[in-house]
Design a protein around this nucleic acid. Sequence first.
DNA 1: CCATCCTTTATCACTCTATGATAGCTCAAA
DNA 2: TTTGAGCTATCATAGAGTGATAAAGGATGG
Lengths: 256, 256
Amino acid sequence: MATANTNSPMRSVHRAFEVLKVLELAQQPLRLTDLAQRTGLHVATTQRLVNVLTEHGYASRHANGYTAGPAALSTAHAFATTSPLRLVARPVLEEIATASGLTASLYVRVQDNRVLIDRVEGGQRPHYSLPIGERLPLYPGAAGKVFLACDPGHDLDATARRLQPVTLANGTVLDATAIRTDLEDAREHGFAVSADERQFGTTAIAAPITDAAGRTLGSLGLSGATHSLRDVQSTALPADVRRAAHTIGARVPAAG
Amino acid sequence: MATANTNSPMRSVHRAFEVLKVLELAQQPLRLTDLAQRTGLHVATTQRLVNVLTEHGYASRHANGYTAGPAALSTAHAFATTSPLRLVARPVLEEIATASGLTASLYVRVQDNRVLIDRVEGGQRPHYSLPIGERLPLYPGAAGKVFLACDPGHDLDATARRLQPVTLANGTVLDATAIRTDLEDAREHGFAVSADERQFGTTAIAAPITDAAGRTLGSLGLSGATHSLRDVQSTALPADVRRAAHTIGARVPAAG
DNA sequence: CCATCCTTTATCACTCTATGATAGCTCAAA
DNA sequence: TTTGAGCTATCATAGAGTGATAAAGGATGG
């Protein structure tokens, strides 16, 4: 968390969100000192910021430190009920999940991560974990790749070098060349595939959701067990996913 | 949204969260101008703030305006998985919901609102709406009252005057005296009851969750259909709710 | 009961950031 | 092209944010 140390406009506000991000990524309550350390901010500064966060409910104070706060739930609830992309995508997710019997997931990009904003299980057993809101990296995983690959005017070479090396869940280690080839494939075909990349035993196909202006709004993923998805590339699924993603993009109110 | 206009420390950070709150409360995308109007801030100031929010993913820009952003989902996810209160309360909610066949809800206070942070349905039909994260007022409703009534050293009289008049879902209008009596009752008995107050047809009992130091950490509510909950006060339910709330409070790591 | 430690909060002068009025830009629609 | 609405950039000034330091609060152990 070395950013936000530079002098810049709205520095304190940026810093506030840096603190919030650290709280979010921590899997446990953090002491003020830890927060200061991880953000790279002075303790006094951190304390002023976290107090504001707490006052507004975005941080919460406990016996053993601070965590994210309940106000985030409210904001998330508001997002879930007002986001045009999410609202428009919902029925499409349901349709493709039902038709395929697979899990349909909707991601959006937030800085250098993707966030799962909706999911529909096509299979019979609904997962009991509720991963909506999970923040995942952009690279391993089909749904993340499309953000990198389908970002127009984006230098895949530089991206590949920045990401390398990447270790997949199946043990494979990818160097810059492998990553670039992978991303080029995705860009060329308009969809990405991953098998046992982020999660062993899971295979996914994903396609970008773009608006009329070509901006990438999100990523639609369809995932299932690897053993039942051998040679997905030669099935109709990629085309289905692309079509669904296109449908969503077309239904989102034209961007300004 | 007339606050945050005063000069004060961390003004810009406070203002950022004011903007976020307006986005959250809006049921639709808001234009920059609307945001500025509702926050009472200058357009230029609003635009700088909302840009920072957008950059960090807490706001989202669409064709017809800004909404809350996807990062809130991540933070909410983090809150849900790390909040000691929520984690400790979960099994208790399940137990009391199962035992009573009613809906158990966990609220925490955020400024002058309560936020639903967890809910377990005891009945057979699970609601399909997912109201977790909903921001509700403190006064009408059992679970909100306890925050007002059980706040130690809190002037009920002043609170009652500040809140009046309140119109309940059943049409009753409460003046300051009625509100104060209601809150006094709750304080005396250690639990609050509401019948058709916020939502017609729903009756609820709630008790405060307090830590060893007497601080109110949250509110445990048990709700069901009014017609099946006549004379709840003379049943064992209030005691059950109080006991459950006490159990939760006792299991939360001692506050600092 | 006191002493010690750890964590959090208050204080304060200086610098640099946030502010807001204005002007300029972008993009549709007329 | 002109018009308009919405958003962004510019800039001087004021005053908020910063961080070093010190103090206060609370727990723990002797």
